[in-house]
């Protein structure tokens, strides 16, 4: 029955459309600048998804428009179509093939996730304190000094951010790093980033936290290690007592009862 369809021509159209859409989509850098080791991995995954998605979209569009062109009723034609109720082989195919595709995507994503979150040997730990509507940063390895509204990190070294929200949920996002993590009051959450490009970026709050949410931003400076050391050495203030107390156990990877964690 389906032998009557110009399958080869339709496939050619789908492939051509997929190629055209993918070419346009891949030529644009959707996510903006890449400035961490995770960024290129995530963008690669996104690009693979763009090609697969272009294919799915082309398939649907070509199938739909071919049907509309070929099987449109002539004006005044009151007759019915052919009483086809299904085709078991086709139905099995469009159950199994998408299953394989999404499982491939799942496996690939899992691998990327593992890679971008793999802890390094000698990371730098930075405490992130968020409160309505300001960011501040503590450097526990550097005498627990404190910086308000400005985050400095050395380039090419893994940073482990430990996040501590003081009032409501905020979310830590540096678009160029492709990394985002909620700051949740009562628990400590972790984000792992290895910045690999020197520059100045913006830290954006992405979790609605009240009327100042849109403007809750901080400056992020990625700099060579020497410069970073100098900057840290220049910090005089220590993390204030109330903030220091909010540094509690990481329940994300170790869901111990709260009493043990000391909320």
């Amino acid at each position: 029955m389906y032998g009557r369809l110009p399958i080869v021509k339709m496939l050619a159209a789908i492939v051509a459309l997929t190629a055209a859409i993918s070419a346009v989509m891949l030529s644009i850098n959707w996510d903006g600048q890449e400035a961490s080791t995770a960024a290129s991995k995530i963008d690669d995954l996104l690009n693979v998804m763009i090609v697969i998605s272009s294919f799915v979209f082309s398939l649907v569009v070509v199938a739909l428009f071919y049907a509309l062109w070929k099987f449109k009723a002539k004006p005044g034609d009151e007759s019915d179509g052919e009483p086809i109720h299904g085709n078991t082989r086709l139905e099995i195919a469009w159950t199994l093939i998408p299953t394989i595709i999404v499982l491939f995507g799942g496996g690939y994503s899992w691998k990327v996730l593992d890679e971008i979150e793999k802890p390094a040997k000698n990371p730098l730990t930075v405490d992130v304190f968020s409160q309505q509507y300001a960011w501040s940063f503590g450097y526990p390895g550097k005498g627990n000094v404190w910086s308000q509204g400005e985050l400095h990190v050395p380039v090419n070294r893994q940073i482990q951010f430990k996040m501590h929200a003081q009032d409501v949920i905020h979310s830590f996002w540096v678009p160029e790093w492709r990394i985002k993590k909620d700051n949740v009051p009562g628990i400590t959450t972790t984000a792992i980033v290895t910045p690999d490009k020197v520059g100045t970026y913006q830290l954006v709050c992405t979790e609605l936290c009240g009327f100042g949410h849109a403007t809750m931003r901080a400056k992020v400076v990625v700099e060579p290690p020497g410069q970073f050391q100098k900057w840290v050495a220049g910090l005089k203030e220590k993390v204030p007592q109330p903030l220091a107390e909010s540094v509690v156990q990481d329940t994300e990877t170790n869901p111990a009862p709260l009493s043990a964690g000391g909320a």
Binding site: L5, K72, G86, E91, P98
Partner: peptide, 23 residues
Amino acid sequence: LLIAVPTGIKIFSWLGTLYFGKI
């Protein structure tokens, strides 16, 4: 990701319904 499969089945079946019909 798996929930996309039954959703895809629906899309493909609507398209299949159009073929050899009188639209």
